[in-house]
């Protein structure tokens, strides 16, 4: 039997997220992300009236979309979607024109203040290619982040996606994100990013 192609996916189980920022800090450390920009971060959103208040924790990374707009618009073919679904920026090709940043509906791209090229989360492909999990998955203290091959029915991520109701951010844009969430709240997605204090 022919082996199916690999399609990586990431799943955030928001029921398990405790808003501890371990993923964000692990990412900074793994990818040497400078201050002021983020590949992975946690958005904390407050909702409701006292005493029926609520707080949501929403960890965000690149969605590594099936139909990435950023790849379509890149004038120098620096943004590439690998066959396994990881959307990757070739640092040697990127000219830092910010077209992709303007095109990305999720605002996950940034210009590296030191290298002046576009960067974003690419699910730590250097780790994934070596058979390891991305740094944020490794760090997550409550195993709220699951990563794996969606095409492999035995993988944890495929099982979880089939078993639970999963959501993606802004499905209406038609980019088909491959970062899934369990228990995503639309209000948390739409809310403005507030700083934690």
């Amino acid at each position: 039997m022919k082996k199916k192609a690999i399609r990586y996916a990431m799943l955030f189980d928001l029921r398990k997220c405790i808003g501890c920022h371990a993923c964000a800090v692990a990412c900074k450390s793994e990818n040497n992300v400078p201050l002021g920009v983020w590949r992975s971060w946690v958005k904390k959103v407050e909702k409701g009236q006292y005493p029926n208040s609520k707080e949501f924790f929403l960890p965000l990374v690149c969605n590594n979309c099936e139909k990435p707009i950023c790849v379509t618009v890149c004038p120098v073919w620096a943004s590439i979607r690998r066959p396994d679904g990881i959307v990757y920026i070739d640092p040697h090709r990127c000219i830092g024109c910010r077209y992709c940043m303007a095109a990305c509906p999720y605002g996950v791209r940034y210009i590296n203040p030191l290298k002046k090229i576009a960067e974003k989360c690419y699910w730590c492909h250097h780790r994934v290619d070596a058979g390891l999990k991305p740094a944020c998955v490794m760090a997550c203290p409550t195993d709220a982040i699951i990563f794996g091959d969606l095409e492999d029915p035995e993988s944890e991520v495929a099982k979880s996606v089939t078993k639970n109701a999963v959501q993606v951010i802004k499905p209406e844009i038609g980019t088909a994100p491959h970062t899934f969430y369990i228990g995503l709240d639309i209000a948390a997605v739409e809310a403005k990013q507030e700083r934690e204090r």
Binding site: E30, R127, G131
Partner: peptide, 30 residues
């Protein structure tokens, strides 16, 4: 895409075993 895949250091045809294990690779030199 093919050229880029090679550039990104991926050539894995097999599905890697992805458990939480205690190893890591260098981001640049692999």
């Amino acid at each position: 895409t093919l050229v880029a895949s090679a550039a990104a250091g991926m050539g894995a045809t097999q599905i890697p075993d992805m458990k939480k294990n205690s190893s890591a690779v260098s981001r640049t030199s692999l």
